[in-house]
């Protein structure tokens, strides 16, 4: 395992000048993935359609992927990108990995390549759940990244299957009759485990050492590694500038997006989050920062904390119960 300080100094294959929002967690994740894949092996990325794709591969100007000034024949720095439609990033990555393996076996490639697939939560878990699960089930050696921002951010912040309870999106509006999103999020970690992934991880660059260790294990190990990256979306979640990393940390500590790692055949491990609800920070701290939850909580100037709005106790209790239920469920996953 490379040390954090060495990873910091590597070349990232993600260049500045992309058109992503200021403070986008996807951009932070790409920087770190770009540095972690700079390990002397050729990398091939398969990208499904999502924010991180349309804003970084935009004709005619910003193509934000490229590693320094190296020519493509420098094998140690080389990498490729294959763009595909919403749902097919994992299966295209599988095809790339199979082809590369064949080429390696007949001697056309001198080294094995590492293959990563990148897609958003809408693309991977709503439109493309089928390809995702089938790719995992077939067990090819690749690393699948799913960036989770709880919405279809690219098309205008519509509901996706990972949207939190009570969240306001453009297709689950809040009104006198509707309390925002009423469906609990899909249990994607459980799905990936059941489909038979070698490693199932949930980690974000807000916990850099854990994230780096997990990505390196995924890149060097055999079998399918799936890494869910919680990505606070500054425009869709509607929070102030400079809170992205803070929110990602809070999301883990309050149990919305617990850091989680599970190897096949071993019990899973929850990280940086307490199973005991009383030891966790209150979820109001997480909800209050975001305007999409403003119908549930409000800022209390006297105490400097966020309080539940009168009449919304039930909705917040429902979220709290769901979090506790999910954490216990994750703990039990074998």
């Amino acid at each position: 395992m490379a040390k954090l300080v060495d990873v910091l100094q590597r070349d990232s294959c993600f260049q500045p000048g992309s058109t992503l929002c200021a403070g986008c967690m996807e951009s932070i994740a790409f920087q770190n993935i770009g540095k972690l894949t700079d390990n002397g092996r050729k990398t091939i990325f398969a990208l499904g359609t999502f924010c991180g794709e349309v804003s970084t591969l935009q004709y005619p100007n910003p193509v934000a992927w490229g590693r320094g000034e190296e020519t493509p024949d420098d094998w140690t720095k080389s990498f490729g990108i294959m763009h595909h439609v919403f749902e097919s990033a994992p299966s295209v990555a599988e095809g790339i990995a199979d082809t590369a393996q064949q080429l390696f076996e007949i001697g056309a490639l001198s080294q094995q390549v590492q293959v990563c697939s990148l897609s958003g939560d809408g693309g991977a878990l709503s439109i493309g759940l089928r390809t995702l699960l089938h790719t995992i089930a077939r067990g090819t050696s690749l690393t699948i990244f799913v960036l989770i921002n709880e919405i279809f951010a690219n098309t205008g912040f519509q509901y996706s299957p990972t949207t939190s309870l009570g969240s306001e999106t453009s297709t689950t509006p809040v009104s006198e009759l509707l309390p925002g999103n009423m469906t609990p999020p899909i249990d994607y970690l459980g799905l990936a485990v059941t489909a038979g992934a070698q490693r199932v991880v949930q980690a974000s660059p807000a916990h850099p050492k854990f994230f780096n260790r997990m990505v390196e294990q995924g890149l060097s190990g055999s079998g399918t590694t799936i890494i869910f990256v919680p990505s606070p979306c500054i425009t869709g979640w509607k929070y102030p500038d400079g809170e992205t990393v803070h929110l990602a940390q809070l999301a883990c500590e309050t149990g919305f997006f617990p850091c989680y790692a599970k190897e096949r055949g071993r019990p899973g491990e929850l990280k940086f989050v307490e199973l005991d609800a009383t030891k966790r920070p209150p979820i109001e701290a997480f909800l209050g920062l975001q305007r999409r939850f403003q119908h549930l909580v409000r800022f209390n100037k006297a105490t400097g904390t966020y309080d539940i709005r009168p009449g919304q106790e039930e909705s917040v209790a429902r979220i709290r119960d769901w979090i506790q239920h999910r954490l216990e469920q994750l703990q039990r996953l074998a």
Binding site: L4, V5, L8, S12, F14, Q15, P16, G17, S18, L20, A22, G23, C24, M25, S27, I28, Q31, N32, G34, P205, A206, P208, T244, V245
Partner: peptide
């Protein structure tokens, strides 16, 4: 290194 890790533009 927190700023380096969390800079979206790597600058």
């Amino acid at each position: 290194g927190h700023c380096i890790i969390n800079c979206p533009e790597n600058i």
